[in-house]
Simulated assay, not measured.
Amino acid sequence: MTAFPSIAAFEMALANLPPPDAASRAAAGHRQDMLTKPPGSLGRLEEIAIFMAGWQGRTRPRLDKGRAVVLAGNHGVATRGVSAFPASVTAQMVANFDAGGAAINALAAAAGLDLRIVAIDLDRPTMDFTQGPAMDAADCLAALNIGAAAVDADLDLLVLGEMGIANSTAAAALCAASFGGSAAEWAGPGTGVQGTALANKIAVIDAALAVHRPAATSPFDILCRLGGREIAAIVGAIVAARHAGVPVLLDGFICCSALAPFIGAHPDIADHCLAGHCSTEPGHARLLERLRLEPLLSLNLRLGEGSGAAVAAGIVRAALAAHDGMATFAEAGVATA
């Protein structure tokens, strides 16, 4: 079944994002106050448990069925020399994922997550967005639906990541088009470009912004013009998860950039999301501020693949274990005063 049969249906889904279950949040908060500890002494672990309760609609949320989804796509702008690696590496890394040899394979397994790899038309890169829109509306809508199809309503947590050579270029362009500023304010080394290579990357993004920033007519249009299929698929997965009552754990700069075009018109779009970490990509901390997300971890990660979010899933699991497994003062016979 197609989650978004039309652009109008996608925009309707954005306009009707459901809120968390207030009763479950309140009950989870009350339980936290009754557990054998001083109130607030587990810090963000308490906040995570209450957050998960609200979005799962359960006083005692669980993480029995967590899924990590890595979306992969190729970018036409890679031909402009914006990455330290050729576009062929995208397919090579997808093969590595499928063979179980990448970081995300090990980290998802350690976190107890089912791992799905979704490669989207790798033999058909998006258009070089210095020459025109990266995707037309139909292509972008198809990618949204590919992402939405990765979401099952019975999931307890969805962990999102990406793979795509040149997608940090697209991410920086999306942020600059959405929030303002020059490419230099948003672009970073990505796969490790420095010096003249980084200057070229910045120039390529500025060229794209000159074409598309004045012409963009809507958040969806910004995504079409400057995004990529895997980035659009991340948007589709996030919105579908919201309507399915599935909380989302986001990875790094590229993953979070998927929401950049939409946060202005829909400031609550990331309310059901946790930021797994803050990467070393210089624009990521600024982007998280715009999304009103506080990262769970800061480990100097910059790999992508969902790797940082998979590590952070262990924090979520710990928060839920404490929330569910601890005794209350009454159960333990511990005096409260």
Rank of each mutant, 00 (worst) to 15 (best):
A148K: 00
P86M: 04
L155N: 13
T130E: 06
D98S: 15
D136G: 14
D152R: 15
G81K: 07
V69M: 07
I117L: 04
A91R: 15
V89Y: 03
V89L: 05
D128F: 04
P133Y: 09
A103W: 03
P125M: 10
L158C: 04
G101V: 10
G112S: 08
D98L: 13
V118S: 11
C175F: 07
G101A: 13
G76D: 00
L160K: 02
A109D: 14
D98P: 04
Q131V: 12
A142W: 05
I165L: 07
T79P: 03
M93D: 06
L160H: 02
R116E: 14
A150F: 10
A102F: 11
I120E: 03
L158A: 00
L113C: 04
A72D: 01
F97T: 12
E162P: 06
L141Y: 05
A134K: 05
N145V: 01
V89D: 07
A171I: 00
L157F: 10
T79R: 15
A142M: 02
S83I: 02
D121T: 12
D114V: 05
R80M: 01
D154F: 02
G101M: 00
L157K: 07
A166R: 13
A91Y: 14
G73F: 11
A110F: 14
S168N: 09
P133Q: 05
T79G: 13
C175L: 08
A172C: 06
D98N: 10
V118N: 12
G132S: 04
D139C: 12
V69I: 06
A110E: 13
F129M: 10
D123K: 15
A176Y: 13
A119F: 00
A109P: 15
P125I: 07
Q92F: 07
V94D: 00
D152C: 14
A134H: 01
G73A: 11
F85W: 14
V89N: 02
T130S: 11
N105W: 11
D139N: 02
C175Q: 08
A78C: 11
A150M: 00
V82G: 00
A148I: 03
A72Q: 01
G164N: 00
A111F: 04
A173E: 00
A172H: 00
D156T: 00
A119C: 03
T79H: 12
D136T: 11
L107E: 09
N74K: 06
A137H: 09
G100W: 07
G101F: 03
P133N: 15
D152Y: 02
A143W: 11
S88D: 02
A150V: 13
A72L: 10
M163Q: 13
A137E: 15
G81L: 08
R124L: 02
N145E: 08
Q92Y: 02
L155S: 14
L122V: 08
D139H: 11
N105Q: 10
D114R: 12
R124S: 08
A134C: 01
M163S: 00
N74G: 11
A170R: 14
H75C: 09
Q131N: 01
L115R: 04
G76A: 09
A143L: 12
L160F: 02
V94S: 06
L155C: 12
D98K: 15
I165E: 05
S168V: 14
A87P: 03
I117T: 12
